[in-house]
Write a protein that binds this DNA or RNA. Structure first.
Ligand code: SF4
Ligand code: SF4
Lengths: 145, 145
DNA sequence: AAGATTTAAGAGTATTTAGTCGCAAAAGAA
DNA sequence: TTCTTTTGCGACTAAATACTCTTAAATCTT
């Protein structure tokens, strides 16, 4: 049950890492993040650019530059990230790949799939980067293999 | 939230179609299925071969040959299909792509993701091809765009 | 036995996703 | 001004996924 692309996975891991460093002020260096989380620097940079473009991050070039969350971490939710990195229709996809999920005649798995999506979406809606960041720092959950 | 590959999607659609034709006896022609469901013949054939190899289907060559379910449709569940076509670890994947889901230190989304997977798995466990096939024939739900 | 039908199998191609590289642009430091 | 640091951006390469095509093997029909 792989639901997220690598770009989204890396972006999320990096954002949670960022949120877990809430004490540190200023910008966080992308090179450092990519090293700590063992993610390709250039690949991560591209994802960050997308997030910057969409108002999740703020970036700054030059010495001591880097990225920072543009809003408080408790105001950024998984749904926001996923809609940006996977597309606005992320939660509107048919399990059987049929077009126009929900709008036209439903496919035979409709009955349970619409509920499953709804419940996952709800979790994504209420889970903030702040919450995940705290879990990482408090309960030493891992972000890296 | 795309969770299934095209091979699995086509395979499932075809199996449900097959189950919906429970009145028809003998083997069902792959060419007919691919035409009715608008799926590439050769692509579908390969998926069917995998399913035959794993005891879901029975195939027969020559005139009036084709495929048929090897077991009654109410004894084949979505979990069976998905484990064959997507891999036995289908329900053991980390949302953040970390290895060893559940066995080692969990990732920060563990709390809700393990429940989400469990509940989807439960639905896959109890949903049979017979059930889906009946929905297609009785309630004219669609299997094709 | 010869020919037609239909699945099996494997090679080949195209598209998407993932990852890499090089250089331009912004900003600070010397 | 010149050099260094660091993000922005586009081109390039690699790998995985999604098809497509050709030929072989099994089976029936005549
Ligand atoms: S059925 Fe469920 S999955 Fe298929 S189209 Fe309707 S909502 Fe989407
Ligand atoms: S956390 Fe959830 S998703 Fe991540 S490894 Fe543990 S169970 Fe898997």
């Amino acid at each position: 049950m792989k639901v997220l692309s690598k770009a989204t996975i890396y972006g999320l891991r990096a954002l949670v890492y960022l949120a877990s460093k809430k004490d540190r002020t200023g910008y966080l260096n992308i090179g450092e993040i990519s090293e700590k989380l063992n993610i390709s620097f250039h690949f991560l940079t591209k994802t960050f650019q997308t997030l910057t473009l969409h108002g999740i991050l703020e970036s700054y070039r030059g010495p001591n530059g880097g990225i920072a969350l543009k809003k408080p971490a408790d105001q950024i939710f998984l749904t926001d990230i996923v809609h940006i990195l996977e597309g606005a229709d992320f939660f509107d996809k048919c399990l059987l790949g049929l077009p126009g999920c929900g709008v036209e005649a439903p496919c035979p798995v409709h009955d349970f799939w619409k509920d499953a999506k709804k419940s996952v979406k709800h979790e994504f809606d209420i889970t903030s980067l702040a919450e995940l960041g705290e879990k990482v720092s408090d309960e030493r959950m891992r972000l890296v293999s």
